[in-house]
């Protein structure tokens, strides 16, 4: 037996580190220059259909060898450390096809065993994982008798039962109704926060990623369109919002006089266009002081993830 207690021995601070990764399927180039540093926490992977999210998961698992570039997952190269690395990764595929005539607990235990857990541990932990995802009472039921929501939970349970350091979830909310989706997102959030398991999930629902992820990676055109903490990316567009109690017109005129673009939105001034907040902060301070206005709030303009995605992927 080899010990897998190497949870914190990774030489890289990033969970995943990709540099100029390329990958082709025959003549079709899926990635040409994918570069991203994915830190600990929950990371959302966004991209249009066919952008290569699932292919990227395959490369992270060492199932597909990249054509070029450097890739490190949990401090190891998936091309060379595939089996050893996969022992520490939990993977939940996008499809809902699981053996219909197998009990949930049997499946989860079996997957835990092949990830290297001794039989007794696998049995205990499969039960624990199923309780965690809310299927404790249903664990003896054949998967074929379960709803889509329950199957998604079984997939999540099999991904975490063996105690992975990293969990990769491919569209974990696909096919769920809004209530089930909320529950699933809460579960994923718990797994990422309470149990210190790093999570990378793909979703085509930006609002989901925005709700639970700390970081985001946007793939477009075979390369990294954007990557980083969501909060930073959302303010990356520049500009600031100024909320005043009074003197709106006077402050707006003062800012325009200094060459700063200003749009009045009820009690707010949206200023600066694409300029970073640091370059307009001094002007705002001076104008507000000159107008003797009451400043309630001055903050960078935050884009929604959808705005960011559309801007990066479609240039809108």
């Amino acid at each position: 037996m080899d010990t897998a207690a190497a949870r914190d021995t990774s030489p890289s601070p990033s969970v995943i580190s990709a540099s100029a990764v390329s990958k082709s399927w025959g003549d079709h180039q899926v990635f040409r220059d994918f570069t991203a540093e994915i830190p600990k926490g929950i990371t959302g992977l966004l991209g249009s259909n066919g952008a290569g999210k699932t292919t990227l998961f395959g490369m992270l698992l060492g199932l597909h060898h990249r054509s070029g570039g450097q890739l490190q997952v949990l401090g190891q190269d998936p091309n060379t450390a595939g089996p050893e690395l996969r022992q520490r990764i939990g993977y939940s595929p996008e499809h809902h096809d699981l053996p219909t005539d197998v009990a949930a607990q049997d499946l989860v235990r079996h997957i835990a065993e092949i990830h290297g857990l001794p039989k007794r541990e696998a049995t205990t932990r499969s039960s624990d994982a199923l309780w965690l995802v809310g299927l404790g009472e249903e664990r003896a039921r054949p998967i074929g008798t379960m709803s889509t929501g329950q199957r998604q939970r079984v997939k999540l349970a099999q991904a975490i039962a063996h105690g992975p350091s990293l969990v990769i979830l491919d569209e974990p909310t696909d096919g769920l109704d809004p209530v089930q989706r909320d529950d699933m997102l809460e579960l994923i959030r718990d797994i990422g926060t309470k149990y210190d398991i790093d999570v990378v999930l793909s979703s085509h629902l930006l609002e989901e990623v925005e709700r639970i992820a700390d970081n985001v990676v946007i793939i477009a055109g075979g390369t990294t369109a954007a990557a980083g903490p969501i909060q930073e990316l959302r303010v990356g567009g520049g500009g600031a919002v100024v909320v005043l109690d009074d003197q709106h017109e006077q402050v707006a005129q003062g800012l325009r006089a200094r060459g700063i673009e200003v749009n009045i939105d009820r009690s707010r001034l949206l200023i600066g266009g694409d300029e970073p907040i640091e370059s307009i902060a001094g002007a705002v301070r001076d104008v507000v002081a000159e107008a003797d206005a009451s400043l309630r709030r001055f903050a960078p303009i935050q884009q929604s993830l959808e705005d960011l995605f559309l801007a990066e992927v479609h240039g809108e």
Partner: peptide, 13 residues
Amino acid sequence: RGYRVYDGPRTGT
């Protein structure tokens, strides 16, 4: 015990 992190030994292939 509930679900918890696993740092125990792992068997091989």
